[in-house]
């Protein structure tokens, strides 16, 4: 399995490459009014309006730094049987790693809020944890988020 890695604080996380449409550089966002702070905003991705999730804010409640290594990972997001596009704002989106399934270990504690955290792998350079994209957005937010997009 090929994965794209990013970092939140000192931790490294990975997203399955098959879920990724494209990695794009930083752009200007138009902000969501009254939205949770982890919604960084929306942007025009190749003619379509795509919402962007600030991963650092979502996981650690810190705003992502606008560095050269900070990128938007555009992923496929399936909800209500429809496939949407979703941008994930991550820091240090710099590496691609290949993971073998048998090397993965079960994570320890998972709370209701951190259901997106997947299995772990112990690499020479440190621990990397898989992210389940689907679980990144709380269920109650999902519908409104993309309906909002459609209305735009």
């Amino acid at each position: 399995m090929l994965c794209l890695t990013f970092e939140v604080g000192e931790n490294r996380y990975a997203i399955d490459a098959n879920e990724i449409i494209e990695v794009v550089p930083l752009v200007n966002f138009t902000t969501f009014p009254k939205a949770p702070s982890y919604f960084a905003g929306r942007f025009n991705y190749r003619g379509e309006i795509v919402p962007v999730l600030d991963l650092k804010d979502l996981m650690m409640s810190f705003q992502t730094k606008m560095y050269l290594s900070t990128r938007i990972i555009v992923v496929k997001y399936e909800t209500d049987g429809e496939i949407h596009q979703l941008g994930l704002l991550g820091e240090k989106v710099m590496d691609i790693i290949r993971i073998r399934d048998d090397e993965l270990q079960d994570p320890g504690l998972i709370t209701e809020e951190t259901r997106y955290l997947g299995r772990l792998i112990n690499l020479k350079s440190g621990v990397v944890q898989l992210i389940t994209v689907k679980e990144l957005i709380p269920p109650f937010v999902r519908e409104s988020l993309f309906r909002d997009v459609k209305e735009d």
Binding site: L2, L4, A17, E22, V23, P25, R71
Partner: peptide
């Protein structure tokens, strides 16, 4: 270029 390499791998 770095970004291109990521997308190319994907």
């Amino acid at each position: 270029t770095n970004l291109l390499s990521l997308n190319a791998s994907i």
